[in-house]
Every structure is written in structure tokens, then in C-alpha cells.
């Protein structure tokens, strides 16, 4: 079972990462590069106010062009394998109905938990967009993902109102609490930032559907191959 989960996650992660990187490279990544020209050009850019920013000359960063794209592919691969591992861990509770269609549903659940819910409080931010304190944002993001996953789980798998109602509360809780306030000024045009947010959410949906489809297909296939679909 361990081998089956990890092998499926690696293969699904690789396929999803290659496809999403190709898609990003013609959609959202040109937008990131364009936004960076505003960031660099901004005369009032204050590095001390928010966080240590990444464009200082002394720190290593990938060279523009192919190298930068390869690191993005690598990071996308890491994210895709991580998401696939979590998704397949969920699939193991759902073995009798294992299918690509079911995988897509799990992918959409991941999209809701990891993309939609956090986006309500922290809209996907283009570089240079006004943002909250980074640590506060990460903490809120993490809490939102955990609570949304628990809430969605209660809502979908709970048989009675006694499970479903707390599920709704868990889903709403991070938004009633509220995301941390924005503390910096935007350096990019609003229209560009809005396009970025919309694009990021749509690509997030595509990414999760790819991960759900490939994970479930490969995980099911590996089960057939070992002939242990029933008891593992």
C-alpha cells in the first residue's frame, strides 16, 4: 500500500506538473514577469516595512529564462506530489468507488479547500500587490485549509445533521474570523492584479482536476497490477 500510494503520487505529480507548467508558461507567468517591471520601477518600494523581499542582488536566484522555468517546473512537481499524496490518502477511504470520475470529485474538493476557501480572504496575489504580513497570512491560510478540509469532510461524509451542521460552521469559521489586514501598498495596476487573481483560481481548478484524474487512474491501475484492489 505504501508503495502503491507513493508511486501513484509521483507519477500523477509528474504528469500534472508538466501540463500545468506548460499552461502557466503561456498564461500566468508572463503576467508575473510583467508585474515585476512595476515592482522594480517603483521609486517608493520600502524593503524594511514588510518582509525581506527576494530581489536583493546578494541572494541566489535562478537565472532568467530556461533556468527559472525549470525551477518553476520543479516546484510545481513538488506541489503536485504533495497534493497527490494528500488526495490519495483521502482516496483510500473511498476504495469501493474508486474511478477517474471519483478522482475528479476529490480533485474538486482539493480545489475548494486549497484554492477557493483561502482565496476568499487572501486573493491570489501578483508580485507587488498590497499584502498582509507574510507570517500572519501563512498562519491564516494554514488554519483555513485545515478547517475547510475538516468542514467539507463533515458535510460530505456526515450522515446526519449532527455532523453536517458543524461542517458548515467549520467552513465558515476562518471567514468569520477574517483574514489578516493588508499592510503594504500596491505597486501594480489594479486591472493586472485582478486578471492575475482570476487566472490563478482558474489554473488552480485545472491543476486539481489533473491531479485528481491522474492520481485516481494510476492508483487504481497499480491496485489492479498487484491484484490487491480488494484488501489494500
Amino acid at each position: 500500500m505504501v508503495f502503491r500510494i507513493f508511486a501513484a503520487a509521483l507519477a500523477a505529480g509528474l504528469l500534472s506538473a508538466i501540463l500545468i507548467t506548460a499552461l502557466q508558461s503561456v498564461t500566468i507567468i508572463p503576467l508575473i514577469h510583467e508585474a515585476e517591471t512595476f515592482e522594480v520601477a517603483a521609486p517608493t518600494h520600502d524593503h524594511t516595512a514588510t518582509t525581506e523581499h527576494d530581489h536583493s542582488e546578494s541572494e541566489w536566484m535562478p537565472a532568467e529564462g530556461m533556468e527559472r522555468m525549470l525551477y518553476t517546473l520543479l516546484a510545481n512537481f513538488g506541489a503536485a506530489v504533495g497534493f497527490s499524496l494528500l488526495l490519495i490518502a483521502g482516496l483510500t477511504f473511498d476504495l469501493p468507488s474508486l474511478s477517474a470520475r471519483r478522482g475528479v470529485l476529490w480533485g474538486l474538493a482539493g480545489f475548494g479547500v486549497f484554492t477557493i476557501s483561502p482565496a476568499l480572504g487572501l486573493p491570489p496575489g501578483i508580485p507587488g500587490l498590497a499584502a498582509p504580513d507574510e507570517q500572519a497570512a501563512q498562519l491564516w491560510w494554514l488554519a483555513t485549509v485545515v478547517l475547510s478540509a475538516a468542514g467539507l469532510g463533515c458535510l460530505v461524509f456526515g450522515k446526519t445533521i449532527a455532523f453536517k451542521a458543524p461542517g458548515l460552521v467549520l467552513l465558515a469559521l476562518p471567514h468569520l474570523w477574517g483574514a489578516p489586514p493588508v499592510i503594504s501598498e500596491s505597486l501594480v495596476p489594479a486591472y493586472m492584479a485582478a486578471r492575475f487573481s482570476a487566472m490563478s483560481i482558474v489554473l488552480g481548478g485545472v491543476f486539481w482536476v489533473l491531479i485528481g484524474t491522474f492520481s485516481s487512474l494510476i492508483f487504481a491501475r497499480l491496485g489492479e497490477a498487484s491484484g490487491s484492489n480488494q484488501d489494500t
Binding site: A75, N76, T115
Partner: peptide, 28 residues
Amino acid sequence: LFSVGFAYSTPVHNAAHDTRHALAFPCH
């Protein structure tokens, strides 16, 4: 996921920068 989306190490941050923004992990 923590290494890709959250780790503070600057080289890791710079390598994963575009992914963090594109996938909407909280980033500066």
C-alpha cells in the same frame, strides 16, 4: 508542500517564487 509553499529559506523561496504566486500560496 511546506517546503514548496512556505519555507523561509531565501534560495528555496526564489526557486519556488513563480509557483508560490501562481498557486496562491501566501508570498510577500
